[in-house]
Design a protein around this nucleic acid. Structure first.
Lengths: 389, 389
DNA sequence: CGCTTAATCTTCGATCTCGAAGGAAGATGG
DNA sequence: CCATCTTCCTTCGAGATCGAAGATTAAGCG
C-alpha cells in the first residue's frame, strides 16, 4: 500500500464500512439486517470491500442455530487514527485502527499552561514517534487517516477553536484544528473532552440511547447522548458546572456568578477546601486516595460534592429522562461521591423518571475520550475521503 | 373514492408523500433535493402519486431564477385526521387534511373529571358529527385516516395509557388508545399535550432544531424538540413542574415533595394565591385579564412565577443549549411572565448558551397541540397503511 | 427583442438493488 | 447416524434507480 490511496466510501459501501468499523456488525447477515439492504447486495459490496483491501474475512463467529457467520473485520492496513485527550496536567494519546481498537496508548505529563502552540507541536511530535514505532503492518506503512483531540474546555466544533475556557490561559479563541491541519493534510477533530468521553462511553451502554456522562475531575463536565448521538445544541450543550446550588455559604465563581456547582464540587474546589484543613493534594486523584485512606475531612467533602451534583442532576433527569447517568473522571473512583449522587437523585426525582434509571461508574475507564475521538474521527475520515476524491 | 382503499406509501413513494404532507417540499425539484433521489425517479413516483389521486398539481410557485416549479399539494380527498386537545375544563377538537391544514376547529366546555369513558365517547360523537358536516369533498366521502388526542398529564405513548396524572381523577392507567381504537379501526395517537404543542410549534420555527416549548396553563408542562424530533426519553421527558425552587416559604406539592415549581408558578397555584387576596378567577385566562386590568397583586404574582420558571430554565438552558424557548398556554399572554422569564435566564445563564437564544411567545397559538397531533398522526397513518396491506 | 443563464422537468440506456430460490454449513433431536 | 430445521451466503432474472442529455420555461440584460 502506498499510504495515499482513497477509501472507497461512497454510497452503500461507505454505510457497510461504517457499520463494521463502528462495531455494529460482524457478518454479512448482520450487515443486511442493520443496513436494510438485501442480503445479495450486501454480499456484492462486501466482496468489493475485501478486494480493495479494506475488509478481511477472519474465521467464523458463533452460530445462532444455523450455519456460522463468516466474521468480517477492518483490515489492519486500512488506516490509523491518532487521538489525544488533553487534561490540565497530563495528556493521554494513542493510535487506533479504523475500528477504534487501540494499538498503543500512552500518558505523559503536560502543562497546558505552556500555551497552545507549544503543547500542540509537542503532541504532534509524539504522534510522529508513535507512528514510527507502530505505524506499519509487516512491511507496509499503514496510512494515517485522521487526528483528533479532546480539550478540557468549551470548543466550537465547526471552527475547531477553543471558546472562552476557564482554566486554559492563552488558549482562548486559538484555532486548534487549523494549527494541526497545517501539519497534516487530514481531517482534524477538536472537541470538548466530556463530549468525547460521552461518545466513547455510549458504545459500552448498548441498550441506552439517552445518556448523561459526567466527568468529575479538576472541573465538572458533562456530555449528552440523545438517541445514540452526541447532543451539542448550539455548541455549548452539556454545561452543568455553572448552575447555582443551594448552600448556606456564598462563594463567587470564576464565571462571575455566585454559588456555582463548580465552586463547591469540582476537584479544584475540593483540593483548595482540603488545603484549608491542612491536607495538601496535587491532583484530583489524590482526593480519592485520601478518601480511601479514611481521611474524614476528605470523605465529608466528597460526599457533600456528590449531594450537590445530585441535586443539580435532579432537574436534568426530570427534564431529559435518560436511560443512565455514567460518572467518569478521576473523582469517579470515590465511592462516596457516587452514592451521594444516587441518594440525591432517587430521593427527589419523579418516580416515572427514575423507575429504570441507572446511575453507574464508567465502564470504559480512562480511555473513554480517546475511543470517543476515534468514533467521531472515523465518520470525519470517511466523509473526508468521499468528498476529496 | 370508496373511502377504504389503502394509501400507496411503501418505499420511495411514502417518503415523497411524507415530504409533501409535512410541508417540507412543494415541487419535484425540492423533493429531489430533500429525498436524495434522482430527479428522474422523483418525477416517476410523483406521476404515480398523482395518478392514484393522492397528490394534485396546483399552479406554479415562485421562480428562483429559472423555470417556475409546478406546485404539488396533497389532494383534499386523500384523507382526514381527527384531532383533539383535552384540557382541564375545555377541549379543542377539529379535522385536518393530511397536510395538517385545519378544515374545522371547535372548542367545547368539557369537565375532565367526568372520567375517561364519558369524555372519550362524547368526543368521538363530536368527531362523527364533524365528519358528517365536513367530511366530503364535492360528492365523494373523504376517508378518515387517524385519531389523535392530547392529554393534560403523563402518557405512555407505546401503550396509549395515562400514567399517574396529578389532576385527572379516574384516568390513572386508563387505556385511552385502546378505548378509541375499539370505535375506529384506525391508528390512534395519544400523547401528552405539551409534547404535541412542541411538535406543532416546531414547524413554525424553521431554523430551530432544538426547542423547549413551555405550556403555562393550569399546570406547567414542557415539550422538548431535539434535532427536529420530539424527545420522549423513557416516556417522561420534559417534566419541569416538580423541580425544587428557591423560596423563603415552604409549600408541599401534590407529588409529596416540598417547594415544587408547580406549587408556586402554575395557573392553579396562582389562582389560589389570588383567592387569598380576595380576587376570584375561574380559569388561568382570568389571571391574564387581571394583569391586563392592572390588578397589582396579579401582576406581582405572575412576575414572581416568571422569575421562578426562569430560574429553573437556567439550568436547562446551560445543559440543553436550545435555539429557542417558546412559551405557550393561556398564561403566555401575560407580558410580565415572559419578561420575568427572560430576565432570569439572561441574567444567570452562560453567555455562550444565551448568545443566540430566543425566548418568545408561541407563534402558532392555541391550535399548536392540534397541529402537532396532526403531524405525528400522519406518520402513524402512513406506517399503518404500509403495514396493514 | 434576442442572447445568456438558471432552474424545472422528462427521456432513455446503463447500472444498481431486490427478492426468490437454492446451496452450504452447522444445530437439533430422535 | 440421518432427517430436519435454522442460519448464512450466493446466483440470477425482474424491476427500480441513476445520471447524462435534452426539452421547457422564465429571469436578467444589453
Amino acid at each position: 500500500m502506498s499510504g495515499k490511496e482513497r477509501l472507497p466510501v461512497r454510497g452503500a459501501q461507505g454505510d457497510l464500512l461504517r457499520l463494521v468499523a463502528g462495531g455494529h456488525a460482524e457478518s454479512r447477515a448482520e450487515l443486511a439486517r442493520l443496513s436494510g439492504l438485501a442480503a445479495s447486495s450486501v454480499s456484492l459490496r462486501v466482496e468489493e470491500l475485501i478486494d480493495s483491501g479494506l475488509l478481511v474475512e477472519e474465521g467464523s463467529g458463533a452460530s445462532r442455530g444455523g450455519r456460522r457467520p463468516r466474521r468480517l473485520r477492518l483490515s489492519p492496513t486500512a488506516g490509523l487514527l491518532a487521538v489525544a485527550d488533553l487534561g490540565a496536567h497530563h495528556v493521554r494519546l494513542g493510535l487506533l485502527d479504523l475500528s477504534g481498537t487501540p494499538l498503543v496508548i500512552e500518558e505523559h505529563p503536560c502543562d497546558i499552561n505552556r500555551g497552545p502552540e507549544a503543547v500542540l507541536d509537542w503532541m504532534a511530535d509524539v504522534f510522529d514517534e508513535l507512528l514510527e514505532r507502530h505505524g506499519r503492518d509487516g512491511s507496509s506503512v499503514v496510512p494515517l487517516r485522521g487526528i483528533g483531540t479532546g480539550i478540557p474546555g468549551p470548543v466550537d466544533p465547526a471552527s475547531g477553536r477553543v471558546v472562552s475556557p476557564s482554566r486554559m490561559p492563552g488558549w482562548n479563541n486559538f484555532p486548534v484544528a487549523e494549527h494541526l491541519g497545517r501539519r497534516y493534510d487530514l481531517p482534524v477533530l477538536v472537541e470538548n473532552d466530556a463530549n468525547l468521553m460521552a461518545i466513547g462511553e455510549a458504545r459500552a451502554w448498548p441498550r441506552c440511547d439517552n445518556l448523561m456522562v459526567l466527568k468529575a475531575g479538576t472541573g465538572i463536565g458533562c456530555g449528552v447522548i440523545v438517541e445514540g448521538r452526541l447532543h451539542r445544541g448550539r455548541g455549548a450543550a452539556g454545561d452543568i458546572s455553572h448552575v447555582r446550588v443551594r448552600t448556606d455559604s456564598s462563594v463567587t465563581c470564576s464565571c462571575g456568578h455566585s454559588d456555582c456547582l463548580e465552586a463547591y464540587a469540582s476537584g479544584a474546589a475540593l483540593m483548595s477546601a482540603l488545603a484549608e484543613h491542612g491536607i495538601t493534594v496535587r491532583r484530583p486523584a489524590g482526593i480519592v486516595t485520601s478518601v480511601d485512606d479514611g481521611v474524614p475531612e476528605a470523605t465529608a467533602l466528597v460526599r457533600n460534592a456528590g449531594r450537590l451534583i445530585g441535586e443539580v442532576l435532579t432537574v436534568l433527569v426530570n427534564f431529559f429522562n435518560p436511560d443512565a447517568i455514567v460518572v467518569g473522571g478521576s473523582l469517579s473512583a470515590a465511592e462516596p461521591l457516587i452514592s451521594a449522587i444516587r441518594a440525591a437523585v432517587y430521593e427527589r426525582c419523579l418516580p416515572l423518571a427514575t423507575r429504570d434509571l441507572e446511575i453507574a461508574v464508567t465502564r470504559v475507564g480512562r480511555d473513554a475520550a480517546l475511543l470517543g475521538a476515534g468514533s467521531l474521527l472515523l465518520d470525519a475520515a470517511l466523509a473526508f475521503e468521499s468528498t476529496h476524491v
